[in-house]
Structure formats: structure tokens, C-alpha cells
């Protein structure tokens, strides 16, 4: 497939339209929604670039944590982890669990809201 423009470029063009053309002509609730729409484009762009590596790493960590080497379905791995936490099979006393959850939460917030204050707290205590 051609990529002139690429999906990232197309998203940037939509974001430019929202910010430079649409938003200045909107007021009240519609202007608020334009701001959200612009932020959503940023999330999409970060998600596209970060997801392959994030998912690969999350699957790897979950496979190790759950001793489920053959299983590659991220949703299923998370479902199993939730079940084991719920049954008490794995608890917060497990350092590997805590390290995994923290790493996954950091990756996610970096995509969703990289300026969120809780990310700085997480990285500060981590020395990362």
C-alpha cells in the first residue's frame, strides 16, 4: 500500500483542521469537544507508534508471570491474571506481579496522558 500521505500524516492533517479551522469557529460545549477531539488524535498517534512494542512486552511479561509460554492472546492473558488475583493465587506480595503491573501502567499512561502527574510519581520512585 502507498503511504503518501501516511496514516500519521493524515491524522496530523485532521488535527490541524480541528485546531486551526474548526475550533476557532466553535463556542461552548462544541469548542470543548473540539479540544477533546484534538487530544484524541494525539492519543491515536502515540498508540499507533507504541502499541506493537508495548503489546509484545506485556505478553512476554504475562507469559512469564503466569507460566503460560504458549499463550499469545493479550486479552486472555489479562483475563487469567485477573482471575488469579481474584482467587488470591497471586497477591501484591509478589514482586514480579507488582513490577509487571507498574510497567504496564506506565506504558499505558505514556500513550493516554503522558503529562499526567501520576506518571512522574511512578517514574520518580522507580528511578527510571
Amino acid at each position: 500500500m502507498h503511504d503518501q500521505p501516511s496514516v500519521i500524516e493524515l491524522l496530523q492533517a485532521v488535527k490541524n483542521f480541528i485546531n486551526d479551522t474548526a475550533a476557532p469557529n466553535l463556542t461552548g460545549h462544541a469548542a470543548f469537544h473540539a479540544k477533546i477531539a484534538s487530544n484524541v488524535i494525539d492519543i491515536i498517534m502515540r498508540d499507533i507508534s507504541a502499541r506493537p512494542e508495548n503489546d509484545r512486552r506485556e505478553i512476554q511479561q504475562l507469559q512469564a508471570l503466569l507460566e503460560a509460554e504458549g499463550l499469545n492472546d493479550l486479552a486472555e492473558l489479562n483475563r487469567i491474571l485477573c482471575e488469579r488475583i481474584r482467587t488470591g493465587e497471586i497477591t501484591g506480595a509478589n514482586d514480579d506481579l507488582m513490577a509487571h503491573l507498574k510497567a504496564a501502567a506506565i506504558s499505558q499512561i505514556k500513550v493516554d496522558q503522558p503529562r499526567y502527574s501520576g506518571l512522574k510519581t511512578a517514574l520518580g520512585s522507580d528511578g527510571d
Partner: peptide, 26 residues
């Protein structure tokens, strides 16, 4: 609305806050 869709991506802010807190608790 885009507002209702986007708020789903604010769930992760509570997850990072909870993990920060649980880490201290444990």
C-alpha cells in the same frame, strides 16, 4: 460523543495512581 469515548483513556490515570499507592502499601 467524543467526550464519552475519550474518557475511557482516563482509566489509566487511576491505574497509575493505584499502583503508586499499592506499591507503597506493599
Amino acid at each position: 460523543s467524543v467526550e464519552r469515548a475519550a474518557i475511557g483513556r482516563r482509566v489509566s490515570e487511576t491505574e497509575i495512581d493505584l499502583i503508586n499507592l499499592l506499591e507503597r502499601a506493599h
